[in-house]
Amino acid sequence: DELEKRVKKIARKLNLSLDQVEEWLKRNNNDELVEAVKRLKKK
């Protein structure tokens, strides 16, 4: 979905793993995208 695409884009842009992106999003209080990261990690 759109949020998952955004997460992947962030990960690529910042050259981070999904775990690192998740931490980064949590620090930025971006719950919506944190949920998207969790969905991606399950895939």
Rank of each mutant, 00 (worst) to 15 (best):
D1V: 08
D1Y: 10
D1M: 11
D1W: 10
D1F: 09
E2L: 11
E2I: 11
E2T: 10
L3I: 06
E4P: 03
E4R: 05
K5P: 01
K5A: 14
K5D: 13
K5Q: 14
K5W: 14
K5M: 14
R6P: 00
R6M: 15
R6H: 09
R6N: 05
V7C: 02
V7D: 01
V7N: 01
V7E: 00
V7F: 03
V7K: 03
V7I: 10
K8G: 06
K8E: 14
K8Q: 13
K8H: 11
K9L: 14
I10D: 00
I10L: 14
I10Q: 01
A11N: 00
A11L: 14
A11H: 01
A11W: 10
A11Y: 03
R12S: 14
R12Q: 14
R12L: 13
K13E: 14
K13V: 11
K13A: 12
K13C: 14
L14N: 05
L14H: 10
L14G: 02
N15F: 06
N15M: 08
L16M: 15
L16A: 05
L16W: 13
L16N: 01
L16G: 01
L16Q: 03
S17H: 05
S17E: 03
S17Q: 05
S17C: 06
L18C: 08
L18S: 02
D19M: 07
D19R: 05
D19A: 12
Q20I: 04
Q20M: 07
Q20F: 04
V21D: 00
V21T: 03
V21Y: 03
V21N: 00
V21E: 00
V21P: 00
E22T: 04
E22D: 04
W24K: 00
W24N: 00
W24F: 11
W24V: 04
W24R: 02
K26C: 11
K26D: 03
K26H: 09
K26W: 05
R27F: 11
R27N: 11
R27P: 01
N28A: 12
N28H: 14
N28F: 12
N28W: 13
N28G: 13
N28Y: 13
N28L: 12
N29T: 07
N29G: 15
N29I: 05
N29E: 09
N29F: 10
N30G: 09
D31R: 09
D31M: 15
D31A: 11
D31H: 14
E32F: 08
E32K: 09
E32H: 09
L33K: 01
V34R: 07
V34C: 09
E35S: 06
A36S: 03
A36D: 02
K38P: 00
K38F: 00
R39L: 06
R39N: 08
R39A: 13
R39K: 09
L40C: 04
L40V: 07
L40W: 07
L40N: 02
K41R: 12
K41W: 05
K42D: 09
K42A: 14
K43C: 13
K43T: 06
K43Y: 11
K43G: 06
